[in-house]
Structure formats: structure tokens, C-alpha cells
Computed example of a mutant assay.
Amino acid sequence: MIYEIIIAILIGLDQLSKYFALNYLKDMGSIPIIQSIFHLTYVENRGAAFGMFQNNQIIFIIVASIASIFGLYYLHKKNMHIVGKVGILLIISGAIGNLIDRVRLGFVVDYFDFIIIWEYVFNVADVFVVVGTVLLCIYILFFEDKEMVK
């Protein structure tokens, strides 16, 4: 039950940030936070990461649903190190956060725009998925084998 509460809180943070982007940032377009480095830029992303595979919402909905169900199953069935659990929690939260947008709006609301680094605009859910994936990789590389030996 605790996992579901954490996931709900993280999804809530994501959806709250997207609410503000939709209701305040959409009409402004882009707000420079640090000129030519970091802006808040409203984008309607109908694709996957980096805008790939535009307008394939049904595929993204299916993949996010399956990943979330598998992740929840894995959290409850396997005793694992906290690094792995946090990684899975973040991935599920991000996947569901973006899934809500796809089902409700037909696109994902993105707004973090690090102009100096790349031309990819992203959101809180995307951060959850990336950080969660890194943590899950760390878990697999450094902790999983040790747990299997026990």
C-alpha cells in the first residue's frame, strides 16, 4: 500500500506542474528563467522521448500501462534493495503521469527547456522516468547479484 501512496504523490506533483503549464504558460509560450540557458516553454508533445514517433498515442498508452502493471507486480513480489525500489517507483510514476496526459489531452504537456544543452523540452514525469531508469540500472549492476546469492 505504501508504494501506491508514493506513486500517487509523485503523479500528483507531475499533474500539478502540468496544470500550471496548461493554465498559465500556454498563452505565454516561453518564459526565460536564465536567458538563453533555461526557459519554461509550453509544448504539446504527441510523440515519445525527443518527439519521436509522433501521433502514436495508442502504442504509448499500451506500453505505459504494461510497464506500470509489471513494475507494481515486481515491487510487491520481489524483495529488493531500496535503490531498485525507488527506481521502479519513479518509472511507474512518470509513465502514469504522461499516460494521464495522453488519455485526457491526446498529448503530453512539456515545459522544461534547457536551451543550452539540447532542444528537447520535457516535464516532471520525464525526469522521474530518466532518474528511475538510472537507479534501476545501478540496482541491476551493483545490487541484484548480491541479493540473488542470499
Score class of each variant (00 low, 15 high):
1 M>N: 11
2 I>K: 12
2 I>E: 15
2 I>T: 10
3 Y>A: 04
3 Y>T: 05
4 E>V: 10
11 I>G: 05
11 I>H: 14
12 G>C: 12
12 G>W: 15
13 L>S: 04
13 L>K: 05
14 D>F: 03
19 Y>T: 06
19 Y>A: 11
19 Y>V: 10
23 N>R: 11
27 D>Y: 09
30 S>E: 13
30 S>N: 12
32 P>K: 03
33 I>Y: 10
34 I>C: 04
34 I>N: 12
34 I>A: 10
39 H>D: 03
42 Y>A: 14
43 V>R: 06
44 E>W: 00
45 N>F: 08
47 G>D: 14
48 A>H: 02
49 A>Q: 11
52 M>T: 06
52 M>K: 14
53 F>W: 08
53 F>K: 06
55 N>G: 09
57 Q>A: 08
59 I>F: 10
59 I>W: 04
59 I>M: 12
59 I>Q: 05
61 I>W: 05
61 I>A: 00
62 I>K: 05
62 I>D: 13
65 S>F: 12
67 A>I: 12
68 S>L: 09
69 I>D: 08
70 F>C: 11
78 K>W: 04
79 N>V: 15
80 M>L: 13
80 M>F: 12
84 G>W: 07
85 K>Y: 10
86 V>G: 04
87 G>H: 07
87 G>F: 05
88 I>W: 07
92 I>R: 03
92 I>D: 00
93 S>Y: 03
93 S>C: 05
93 S>N: 11
94 G>S: 04
101 D>W: 00
101 D>Q: 02
104 R>F: 15
106 G>L: 04
110 D>V: 06
111 Y>E: 06
111 Y>D: 12
113 D>L: 06
113 D>I: 02
114 F>P: 06
117 I>V: 10
118 W>V: 14
121 V>W: 04
124 V>D: 04
126 D>S: 05
127 V>M: 14
128 F>L: 04
129 V>S: 01
130 V>N: 08
131 V>A: 11
131 V>H: 13
132 G>C: 04
134 V>D: 09
134 V>W: 09
136 L>W: 02
136 L>A: 10
138 I>K: 14
139 Y>H: 01
141 L>R: 15
142 F>T: 00
142 F>Y: 11
144 E>D: 11
145 D>R: 15
146 K>N: 06
147 E>A: 12
149 V>P: 15
150 K>R: 14
